[in-house]
């Protein structure tokens, strides 16, 4: 891929957020996947985002345990 498609870690956080609201374009998806594949920091961050979205979803569906004592 060309340098034009290269994205920074910060760019990937925007793409991860945008992907919740609209389908990413083919080239955005490729840039995101390529960056994450090569960047261990982003692998950690993307697992955190994945866990965040999963647990927020569980909370909003009432699948989370009660938080009161």
């Amino acid at each position: 891929m060309t340098d034009k498609g290269k994205v920074t870690c910060r760019d990937t956080t925007w793409l991860v957020s945008d992907a919740r609201d609209r389908p990413l374009t083919e080239s955005e998806r490729a840039s995101l996947a390529d960056h994450i594949a090569e960047c261990s920091l982003c692998q950690g961050a993307s697992k955190q985002f994945g866990a965040l979205f999963r647990e927020v979803g569980a909370y909003l569906k009432g699948e989370a345990p009660d938080t009161e004592a």
Binding site: T8, C9, R10, C39, L41, Q43, G44, A45, Q48, A51
Partner: peptide, 18 residues
């Protein structure tokens, strides 16, 4: 959270799965 190159400034530990 990011350095001058817009790379994450610190390692991201995966949260211990609750």
């Amino acid at each position: 959270l990011f350095d001058a190159e817009d790379c994450w400034a610190a390692p991201k530990n995966v949260w211990a799965n609750p």
